[in-house]
Each structure stands twice: as structure tokens, then as C-alpha cells.
């Protein structure tokens, strides 16, 4: 999959590229409006990550340009401007998602995957990881072809783990993914533990291997060989 990252901050560009590169994506980047324009005019991308405030122009104009050109690319706006107006404007213009800064790379990764699934680039509607298969459209999870009855939070937790498989995801990333802005640090860590315990038990009941490794101090790793 080919991704274009339009972001003017070099450090952020570097980290995003590094993280997504490990996912096996082909990732290119543009540091300002003009370079971004050139790239979207010449190449085809599957997904475009675009910052709104750019040198020489606005990321929203690039979104507009892509839509005018009937681009098939999925668009995620990453912006420091977490204002409702910008969010609505961006989504109205045809962006698929809006991720306010500061975001977690694990969250960005999960959003890219979700967008990919929605656009159905892979040609199939289910995610299959060894004995686990998930059909996101139906929100159903099967282990060894047996339906696992998960709560919303448990389902979201599993999907987040699988989106970031073989990665260390911090408890804070999980908390933010599950509860959004108003996740309190201390108690949310306890809730993650409770949800994870239930999830592990439900999966194990259907004969699923325990893929979730606890990483001391930080979080978890959904490890698949």
C-alpha cells in the first residue's frame, strides 16, 4: 500500500514514516503545500495523511483538489487544530477521517487500517489472524469458527491489538482509543486490565492461544509469529 504523508514538521514526519514503514507500507512524504500538490498530481496513493497548516497553503485545499480529481485515495487529516469547524469542513470536503494532534502512532496506524478496510483495498471483508477471524462490518469475532460474544470495549480492544500486532502498545494509547479525550490515567489503566482479562478469558474459552504479552511497565504486545 502506498501512503503519502504531508507534514511540515520534520521530526514528526520522520517518526510517522518510521512507524508506518515497519507496517510494510510504502511511504512518501511532502513537507509543504507545493511539493504536496506536485506529488498528488503525478502519483496515485492509496492513503494520504495531510496536515492542515502547511507552508504556502492549507491542507484542506489539497483535500479539495484530490476530490475534484476523483482520487480514490483515502484521506486522513492530521491537525493541531482540533476545532469542530475544521473537522466538519475537512469531512465535508471528502476527507475520511480527522485525527487531532497530538495522536498516538498506534492510533494513526489503527485508523489507516480501518480506512483501508472500509475502502476494501484488500478485497476481503474479514481480518484473519491465525484462529481469530473478525468481520468488522458485522462486528463479529470468531475463534476456530465459533462465535465469541464480546462487549463493545472488548471488541474494540481486540481490533486495536490486531491493527497494531507485533507492536508494543502503551496503556495510554489503549485508554485513549477506548475512551477518547476523557480517559483518566490511573483508573483507566485498571479498566483496561479488567477488559483485557475478560477478553483473554473469552478467547481462551474458544481455544484461542493467548497472544497478548504484558510488557512490563508500559503496556501490551499482541504477538503473532
Amino acid at each position: 500500500m502506498k501512503i503519502l504523508l504531508i507534514e511540515d514538521e520534520p521530526e514528526l514526519r520522520k517518526s510517522i514514516k518510521q512507524y508506518l514503514h515497519q507496517e510494510g507500507y510504502l511511504i512518501e512524504s511532502a513537507s509543504d503545500f507545493i511539493k504536496a500538490q506536485e506529488k498528488v498530481n503525478v502519483y496515485q496513493y492509496d492513503c494520504i495523511l495531510v496536515d492542515i497548516t502547511l507552508p504556502n497553503g492549507s491542507g484542506l485545499d489539497i483535500v479539495k483538489q484530490l476530490k475534484d480529481a476523483n482520487s480514490k485515495a483515502g484521506i486522513i487529516i492530521i491537525s493541531a487544530k482540533n476545532s469542530l469547524d475544521d473537522r466538519i469542513k475537512g469531512l465535508d470536503l471528502g476527507a475520511d477521517d480527522y485525527l487531532p494532534k497530538p495522536f498516538d502512532l498506534a492510533e494513526l496506524n489503527a485508523r489507516i487500517k480501518a480506512l483501508n478496510r472500509r475502502r476494501n483495498f484488500d478485497g476481503n471483508k474479514s481480518i484473519i489472524v491465525n484462529e481469530i477471524s473478525i468481520i468488522p462490518e458485522e462486528r463479529t469475532v470468531k475463534v476456530n469458527d465459533q462465535l465469541v460474544n464480546l462487549t463493545t470495549k472488548e471488541y474494540e480492544l481486540l481490533l486495536f491489538f490486531i491493527s497494531n500486532k507485533n507492536r508494543v502498545v502503551s496503556k495510554n494509547s489503549i485508554a485513549e482509543h477506548l475512551w477518547g479525550d476523557d480517559s483518566d490515567q490511573l483508573d483507566s489503566h485498571d479498566f483496561i486490565y479488567v477488559h483485557l482479562k475478560n477478553l483473554r478469558k473469552k478467547l481462551a474459552d474458544k481455544g484461542c492461544e493467548d497472544y497478548v504479552q504484558t510488557i512490563y511497565g508500559i503496556g501490551y504486545n499482541f504477538k503473532i509469529n
Binding site: 514538521e9 521530526e11 517518526s15 493541531a80 487531532p100 497530538p102 502503551s170 503496556g219
Partner: peptide, 15 residues
């Protein structure tokens, strides 16, 4: 917001 995003991203990578 942007410096915070950079710190967060690097924590994610370091992890």
C-alpha cells in the same frame, strides 16, 4: 500540539 505529537510518536517508537 505538534511538539507533543512528536514526543508521543517518539515514545511510541522507543517502546
Amino acid at each position: 500540539q505538534t511538539p507533543l505529537a512528536i514526543i508521543k510518536a517518539n515514545i511510541n517508537l522507543l517502546m
